[in-house]
Write a protein that binds this DNA or RNA. Structure first.
Lengths: 257, 257
DNA sequence: TCACAAAATAACAAAAATTCTGTTGCGTTT
DNA sequence: AAACGCAACAGAATTTTTGTTATTTTGTGA
C-alpha cells in the first residue's frame, strides 16, 4: 500500500466515520504515528479535512463535500461510462461546451476521440487536458478562478458565454429532485445557466445517487434538457417522475457490453 | 550536471551551431551515446528539435523560434531581474494585468510575493502558477488557446479585457525600434492593445537585445507606456531615442546590488 | 537488389537521486 | 505529568537516470 492509497483510505474512513484517531490509523495501516501525522498534514493542506489533537475530522457536508480533488477520485468508473454515453452524441466538427466538475473533466479529456472539435469550457481540468492537443480548438471562457471548483466563474464567464454558441452543451449537476435540478452554489448556477443558454442542444449528466436530492439553488427544470444521462438506474420514484415528464433518460451502463 | 541541464546545454549548442553530432555530445558531456539518444528523444518529443541520423538539427527560424517551451528556458536570469524591477511597482491590494510570453510568466509567478492581489491574465503559464495560491484573486480572460504562445487570444479575450480595469498592466514585446513597439502576430497585438487600454498605468518589458528590431505589426508608440523596463542597457542609439522622447527607461540590472 | 557497416532501438541491470518512514528529542497542550 | 505535535536526522524503499548488451533498422555502394 502506497502513500496515496493510504491517504485515500483515510479519506474513506473520514467519510464513513466523520473522524479518525491517529493511533488507530497507525495501527490499522501498520505505520508509525509520525507517518500518519504527515498524511494528515497533506490532507489538511489539500483542504479536505481538519487536523485535531489525536486525529482528524471532517466538517461533513461543507467544504469537504465540495472539494474537487477528493471528488475526482470518487466513482471514476461511473463517470467513465457516463462520459462514454455522452461521447456518442458528439460528431467530429462540432462545437461542444463542457462545464465545471470532475465528471465533466473526464468527458472533456475524452473529447480528443472525436477530433476535430471546438471545445468551449470554464473547467480548468479540461483546459489543461486539451491544450496542446492538435485538432482541438480550445476556447476558455475566462472568469475568476475558483480553487474549490477548479474552474472559472463570475461575470466574465457569463459575458463570454453569452457571446458564444455551441452545438452541444454538457451540464453536470449534483442534485435532481423530481423534475428540478439543483446546485449549492449561486455563482456556479449562473455559469451553468449561461452555458445552457448557449447550447443548441443541452444534456444533463447526473450520477444515479444524486437523484432525489436537492440543494440550495434551483438550476433548471429538467425539461430544459434534451436528455438526461446517468450511470446506473436511479431509484424507481425518480424514474417515474422523469417518465411522466416525458424526459429521455439514458442509463449508460445499460448501453454497454 | 543533471539531465535537464544537459538538455539545456544541448539546446544552447543547437542554437549556435544549428546541428549537433551525437558522438560529439556523448564525449563532451562524458556520458554514453544511449543517454544522448534519450536526451534527443525528449527534446524532439518536446518539439524543439529534430533527430537525424547521427545527431540532431534545428530548423532555425521556423517552429523552433516560436516554441514557447524553448523560449521559457532562455535568459532566465535576465527575465528574473526584469521581473524584480516590475515587482517593485506592485503594491498589495492592487489589480494587475499580465500578458502572454515567458517573461510575463516569470513575473506572474512572482506576484505571490505581493499578496493580496487581483491578477488578470491570458497567459496559461500564469494561470497554472497562480491557481490554488491563496490571497490571489485570479481572473482569466478566456479566449481561444494558442499552443504557440501558450495563452488565450481572440475576440473572447478582447471582449473580456474591455470590460475590466487594472491598476497596472505589464506588457512585454519582442521588438522595439526608435519609439515604436512591434509584434509579429496580429492576434496577439490585439490582445496586448486591449490590455493596455484596460490598465490605468502600463509598463513595457523588453529584453535589451530586442531594441533596434522591428516586426510585422506595430503594437504601440512607446509614449503610451508609463515607463520601459529592460534587463541591461541597450545599444546607445536606442537609449538616445528614448531620452529624446522623454521616456523613462528602467535598467533592472543597475538597480540591484 | 544485396550485403554490410553504422546507427537506432529495446531490454535489462546497475547506479544515483528522490521520496517515504521511523526514531529521537524537545517544546506544547491538556 | 502524561500525551501529543513537530522538527530534524538517518535508513529504507522507490523512482529516475544511466550504461551495457543484443537486436533491428537504415543508408550506402557495388
Amino acid at each position: 500500500m502506497k502513500r496515496e492509497d493510504r491517504k485515500q483510505a483515510i479519506m474513506d474512513l473520514l467519510i464513513s466515520e466523520g473522524a479518525v484517531d491517529l493511533e488507530d490509523l497507525a495501527q490499522r495501516f501498520a505505520v508509525s504515528k509520525m507517518t500518519i501525522h504527515r498524511d494528515l498534514d497533506d490532507l489538511e493542506a489539500a483542504g479536505v479535512m481538519r487536523k485535531i489533537r489525536g486525529g482528524g475530522t471532517i466538517d461533513a457536508g461543507t467544504q469537504f463535500e465540495s472539494d474537487f480533488r477528493f471528488r475526482a477520485q470518487q466513482d471514476r468508473d461511473a463517470k467513465n461510462i457516463m462520459a462514454q454515453a455522452a461521447l456518442a452524441l458528439v460528431e467530429p466538427g462540432m462545437t461542444v461546451m463542457i462545464n465545471d466538475g470532475s465528471m465533466a473533466a473526464i468527458l472533456g479529456a475524452r473529447l480528443v476521440e472525436k477530433r476535430p472539435l471546438t471545445v468551449i469550457t470554464n473547467n480548468a481540468a479540461v483546459i489543461d487536458a486539451l491544450k496542446g492537443e492538435g485538432g482541438i480548438t480550445l476556447i476558455a471562457t475566462g472568469g475568476a478562478y475558483s480553487a474549490k471548483f477548479n474552474g472559472f466563474f463570475g461575470m466574465v464567464t457569463e459575458a463570454t458565454l453569452s457571446a458564444l454558441r455551441a452545438d452541444i452543451a454538457f451540464i453536470s449537476a449534483p442534485a435532481v429532485a423530481g423534475v428540478e435540478v439543483f446546485h449549492m452554489d449561486e455563482t456556479i448556477v449562473r455559469a451553468k445557466r449561461a452555458m445552457m443558454a448557449a447550447g443548441t442542444k443541452t444534456y444533463l449528466l447526473v450520477h444515479h445517487s444524486r437523484f432525489g436530492r436537492t440543494a440550495l439553488h434551483k438550476l433548471a427544470d429538467i425539461s430544459e434538457f434534451e436528455a438526461v444521462i446517468t450511470d446506473t438506474a436511479p431509484e424507481p420514484a425518480s424514474i417515474t417522475a422523469l417518465t411522466q415528464a416525458k424526459i429521455s433518460l439514458t442509463v449508460a451502463a445499460e448501453q454497454e457490453g
